[in-house]
Design a protein around this nucleic acid. Structure first.
Lengths: 216, 216
DNA sequence: GCAGGATTTCAACGAACGTTGAATTTTAGT
DNA sequence: ACTAAAATTCAACGTTCGTTGAAATCCTGC
């Protein structure tokens, strides 16, 4: 049998996800992954064809679910506003809240995945290519919504605003502990409630300020 | 003789910087670095003790200069405002403008360095530790200035705002080409004039919106 | 309970890895 | 010119890397 939940296949993906997240693709060997997965090395090549394919499989395992629930969140917001456009805050929240909920429900499952995405997003090798491949349709959909919320905004300002947002988002969800050190533990990377309270306000403020500037 | 400009030592650092920037520490071998530097492999271990120390040297080579000119930019802004506090925009610009100027003057020297920092900032392994070690004093200095510009702002909001800023900043200066793809080449990662126009406005808008929210 | 495919084990391959020590060449002070 | 130190070359070490093929075991449908 093949496509039912094979526990070993999942165990390999779990182990790979965690290890790839902490050091990137090259910092981790297949042997380390399979040791953590408690399975023979060659099983990695049986279930996946190569190390690269394993990496790809780690990415693909969660990306569809992620995109689906974010899209649903956006559609829910749009449905609440039949005629008028949603606010920028509401749209940003539809983009971020699903991430927070995934972490709240199943932190162990998603934490490493978000850390991995942060690294990919900031990698000159992969950032342009992989992020585009996996997230572009969804992101374009969100930018459409933002365009409606900010009808006077210039196109370039919209894209740059999203770009700044993207950097803030991926770093924040990577939970690197940086803000813990900087703030002397006054703030904590893992404090999702704080993020949920602050990120939409900050980002929406940024969008508005930049778009307002563009109309001058 | 030792501490004069040894061209080979610099060539090794240049090669290492470029290669580390594109794939991180582990994706690059010492042999690859030394091939690019056109020098024997063992010279890497003569000039630096190990691969890790070479990596550290790459980081250290530019960090002091970087921190110095940013500090100078901040002090210049503060000197312009004897009694009143500088605006948030001015402070953010003092933080970002030096980066833009370095890229404008010597793009080849600094481009890879910024890409490397983006990866480190987003690495769970190194992000908390290395960024804190290298940049904390300067960052705290900037946060002090921001506190004066936003005297009613809560401490937590200040730190979280800076955190969002940090993510946007490092991703933007990494020039990953992501925004190029997303915008259909309407915007370009390498377009420093666009960044200079937009980043301070966006970030300052974020700071203000978040601080205003905190006072409610 | 048997057949056949799915899964797992075991052993091994050649290549590349980080690192080192000794020999050699280049450089600088006298 | 001589010397000592600095810089570079060369060859090699043990380890780990990604990957593979064949044999053994497990599971499922009949």
């Amino acid at each position: 049998m093949n496509n039912k939940n094979h526990p070993t296949r999942e165990r390999i993906l779990d182990a790979a996800e965690e290890l790839f997240a902490s050091g990137g693709f090259s910092a981790v060997s297949v042997r380390q992954i399979m040791k953590k997965a408690e399975a023979d090395v060659s099983l990695a090549y049986y279930h996946f064809k190569s190390k690269r394919d394993l990496f790809e499989a780690v990415m693909l395992r969660r990306v569809e679910h992620l995109n689906a629930i974010r899209l649903r969140a956006l559609e829910a917001v749009e449905k609440r506003h039949k005629d008028d456009a949603p606010t920028v805050e509401e749209i940003i929240e539809a983009f971020t809240r699903p991430l927070l909920e995934l972490l709240a429900e199943k932190h162990d499952e998603w934490h490493y995945y978000f850390a991995l995405i942060a690294q990919i997003n900031n990698s000159p090798d992969l950032g342009g290519k992989l992020m585009t491949r996996y997230f572009d349709p969804l992101v374009s959909r969100f930018i459409d919504a933002l365009r409606k919320a900010l009808p006077e905004c210039r196109e370039e300002d919209l894209y740059w605003s999203y770009h700044f947002f993207s950097g803030a988002l991926t770093l924040t969800f990577a939970e690197t502990g940086r803000i813990d050190n900087l703030s002397g533990s006054r703030c904590r990377s893992s404090d999702m409630a704080s993020i949920n309270e602050r990120m939409p306000a900050f980002i929406a403020g940024g969008f508005r300020a930049l778009c307002a500037r563009g109309q001058r």
